[in-house]
């Protein structure tokens, strides 16, 4: 009886078609992903080796490697975060704790939104002119890091804001009621409670920095040398710091240049490393989100 109702009898061919399209689209999306990751791994795994990761490409020594690019990537990540995290978290604190709704807040929110919509080529052009030429940094890791600071700022602001919003108001009134000043309350109560959210923003920013290329091509350049170390501790520190003012290409830039020259095996090797990094970042995010939910 149940199978014979009018409802079940009516066949709608168009519906089957639409449902098919829904399944089809979903499988296309998933296959694309598996295809992209699988293919890069299959092609790149052969290139990966210990020497590929620890040497610098040099015709003289006959080595092919991405060690210099790995170091450059690390430099850009650290320098960018050093600049972007305090500014971003500070902005979020202002928007959430100090600001009263009005013109200024609307303007800040609009410009933050605008920053996240500007394509990276334009950040690259701006960075090249402003940090490179006006501030005289030229093609350097520092110039690239400053450019990326502007780019990842919205990510950090938005996530920190989200985190501050979830801190219960009772924490605030509790601290203020006990006689704490506002700054003291922010420092000792709000920020510790908001750390998971701030960390989420930072990890997302790392992902963005690792994958960025257009903005860095015009600002950080493409050198692939390792910092030359030697001498005393103080000298080494100086040399490591000085590297920030030198040109340096990240992994993505190296990948781009290698594929431009038709050296696809090196490009796929670098791609493999990039995808591993992206996968790790994703996994870390998932773990963090899971831990945050259980809190």
């Amino acid at each position: 009886m149940t199978g014979d109702t009018l409802y079940h009898k009516k066949k709608r061919p168009l519906e089957a078609l639409l449902l098919g399209a829904v399944y089809g689209a979903a499988s296309v999306s998933v296959l694309l992903l598996c295809g992209v990751i699988g293919y890069v791994f299959a092609k790149g795994a052969g290139t990966l080796s210990w020497s590929f990761l620890t040497t610098v490409t040099s015709a003289l020594k006959q080595t092919v490697g991405i060690a210099g690019n790995l170091v450059n990537t690390l430099y850009i990540i650290v320098l960018t975060l050093l600049a972007a995290t305090p500014i971003g978290v500070g902005a979020a604190i202002y928007l959430n704790e100090y600001a009263k709704p009005g013109r200024l807040v609307r303007l800040i929110e609009f410009t933050t939104e605008t920053l996240s919509g500007i394509p990276s080529v334009l950040f690259g052009l701006f960075g090249m002119v402003f940090f490179g030429e006006v501030l005289g940094l030229g093609y350097s890791l520092l110039s690239g890091a400053f450019t990326l600071t502007l780019m990842v700022l919205p990510l950090i602001v938005r996530n920190a804001q989200e985190a501050l919003r979830t801190v219960p108001d009772s924490y605030r009134s509790g601290a203020l009621g006990m006689g704490a000043s506002r700054w003291h309350m922010i420092r000792t109560i709000l920020l510790p409670s908001a750390i998971p959210g701030i960390l989420t923003g930072i990890i997302l920013a790392v992902g963005r920095i690792v994958g960025e290329s257009a903005a860095l091509l015009f600002t950080a350049g493409s050198a692939r040398l390792l910092p030359r170390l030697g001498g005393g501790l103080l000298e080494n520190v100086k040399k490591l710091g000085g590297k920030a003012l030198e040109s340096g290409g990240t992994l993505t830039i190296e990948l781009y240049l290698q594929m431009q020259n038709g050296k696809y095996d090196v490009a796929f090797g670098a791609g493999c490393v990039l995808i591993v990094i992206v996968l790790c970042i994703n996994l870390w995010m998932k773990l963090l989100a899971g831990r945050w939910k259980t809190r």
Partner: peptide, 13 residues
Amino acid sequence: LLAGIPSVIYGLL
């Protein structure tokens, strides 16, 4: 994950 893959990799493929 698809959103996090760097654009140069799409270019390479």
